[in-house]
Amino acid sequence: MTTKPQSTEVLRYTAFSSDPAGGNPAGVVLDASGLDDANMLAIAADLGYSESAFLSDPPAELADGHGRAFTIRYFSPKAEVPFCGHATVATAIALAELGGPGDFAFATSVGTVPVTVASVDGVLRATLTSIEPRIEEASADDVREALAALDWPAEDLDPALPPRIAFAGARHLVLAAATRSRLADLQYDFARLEALMHRLDLTTVQLAWRESDSVFHVRAPFPVGGVVEDPATGAAAAAFGAYARELGVVAAETELTLHQGVDMGRPGVLTVTLREGDPRVRVSGTGARIPDAG
């Protein structure tokens, strides 16, 4: 059996909430240099959070140009994940608590992700900047299969927000509900949705309901990670911002508020910022250390 080295400290932080009982919890290992893949997967599985983040030294080209740069890897309880927004936010806030706010750079498997942490009214707030996103068509057959797994009738979708696959570091199928009650009712076929997601190389399914021009409520089934639902999903929020801009349902330069985790009892708030002339998406949120049990 693989065990983690005794010297490895595993921190627990929540992201997208200043309340440890809200947002999305993540494990954070600030020095994973002595860990192999099996060690990291074992730690993530033991914690049981949707993802955990593991830091090591940055590649030389990043270290030379940035004072606080790291390589970061992400593991769910079942597998490595290419990019995770909430674990990035949690890690940046953990680093800022140790060394002060400022700019960080994380070398991920999909590219470099810069993060700025600032103190706002005494609360640390992190803003990550995604890699350049892209939007793809979702085939009618794949959408039908997703709806069947979710047990959602097609008429419960919002025709103004058509299905798409959105990527900003990880792939997400975006499905928009026509009503808040449809979004709230999430009882799905875990194995069936997991199989579809593996086939399409999806990290989550991003379910959304539009409350107003700039406010959305979202949920993110995550069976491929071994959990039913992700409470607050930074990678999906970045992808969703790109999706909304691509479809022209929001302005090219705007700020969106995404509420997630409410239906799970772990409310969190993600701020998505789009800038005209910059295809990248910024996702911001607070975070908090989760006290050790006992």
Rank of each mutant, 00 (worst) to 15 (best):
A184E: 06
D185K: 07
A160E: 14
A235F: 06
V215E: 14
V228R: 14
R219C: 01
D213G: 12
T203W: 09
A149W: 07
D189W: 01
L175H: 01
L147Y: 12
G225W: 07
L173D: 02
A244G: 02
L157F: 06
L173M: 05
A251Q: 07
A237Y: 00
S181H: 11
V215L: 13
V227K: 09
L186K: 05
Y188L: 02
A146L: 13
V218M: 14
D156Q: 12
P153W: 05
V215F: 06
A154P: 12
T203N: 14
A236F: 07
E194K: 15
R180K: 08
P159H: 06
F216E: 05
A242H: 03
R245C: 00
S214I: 08
L202Y: 11
A177K: 03
D230I: 05
V250A: 00
T233W: 06
A237R: 07
L196W: 09
H198Q: 15
L161C: 07
L193T: 10
R164D: 04
A160W: 02
E155T: 15
V228W: 14
A237F: 02
T204K: 13
P231V: 01
E211P: 06
R210G: 05
A232G: 12
V218E: 07
E211D: 15
F216P: 00
A177N: 03
H198N: 14
A251V: 04
T204I: 09
